[in-house]
Amino acid sequence: MTPILEFQNIVRAFKKGVPVLDGVTFSMQEGEVLGLLGRNGSGKTTLIRIAMGMLFPQAGTVRVFGISPTGDPVAVKKRIGYVAEEQVLPTGSNIAELFAFHRYLFPTWDSKLERQLLDRFSLTGNAQQIRQLSKGQARQVALMCAVCHRPELLILDEPAGGLDPAARREFLETSIQLLNREGTAILFSSHHMNDVERLGGRVVLLDDGKVRLDRQLDQIHEDHCVAMIPRSAVPDAATLERLPGCLRARPVFDDWHAVFQGTPDAVRRELQESLGLDGIRCVSVPLEELFVEMVGSSRLAEASS
């Protein structure tokens, strides 16, 4: 089956010699929900803009529905819905005018869904000027613009950034309810782990321009743990990262914290055997902790090693 979205060895830099994306490769299938995680500046937005044809990759290929988004952007964008934190709506218009424009651009525009969502979001009248909307309301309008044509792929780039918890939940639940249950694939970027856990699906973690982790959320919960090893037992992080199943290691006070693939008991047994140490603790951690262990203080770890 042709992937709905495919990145192959994507490289992109904004400053010569400092790649933001350095050989990113992964793909998405129809109906899949994929959370793109990473720290600020890890390249999430860059990758999404490359998928939208708004940025050109400097190496590698990207295909959306099997089409190059820079080669035929119109064909690609007709089948995509896009909401971004930075997205700006035309402030000089009102909601009705904006919807009229989208209706004109997208022949598949669902007016019934538009009415349902207007009620759901309590947007009192679509004659409201966009400049007079609150941040949350503006994001709701942007979501309506993105979903009412029933896209095959919904791309959400930090969609709930800056919204209060209630508005965030409303936004994300609406996205899932509206589209994913009908088979629409959703690619969303976030550094809010609660959002990722709420949406479920697959997680791709970007760090230093590369894909550090690409797993189903359930697998991550079941099959990953953090081992805490005394600093004195291991000379550097690289030694730990050479051990089988180790994804990342970093120093935290007197310990090394290393993320391993495997259950806590199995990882502890293997570490005790390979390092000949007792005092090793292995624990399952929530996604947020795992995220911090994977990408947190990476420079410090590199410097100390």
């Binding site: 035309p90 000089g92 218009s93 009102n94 009705a96 005018e97 904006l98 009229a100 424009f101 209706r103 004109y104 651009l105 009248g125 679509n126 004659a127 409201q128 000027q129 007079q132």
Partner: peptide, 14 residues
Amino acid sequence: TRSRSTTALPWWPV
């Protein structure tokens, strides 16, 4: 003041 509802041409926002 809220502006009145309009049935604008599609390209008006642009």
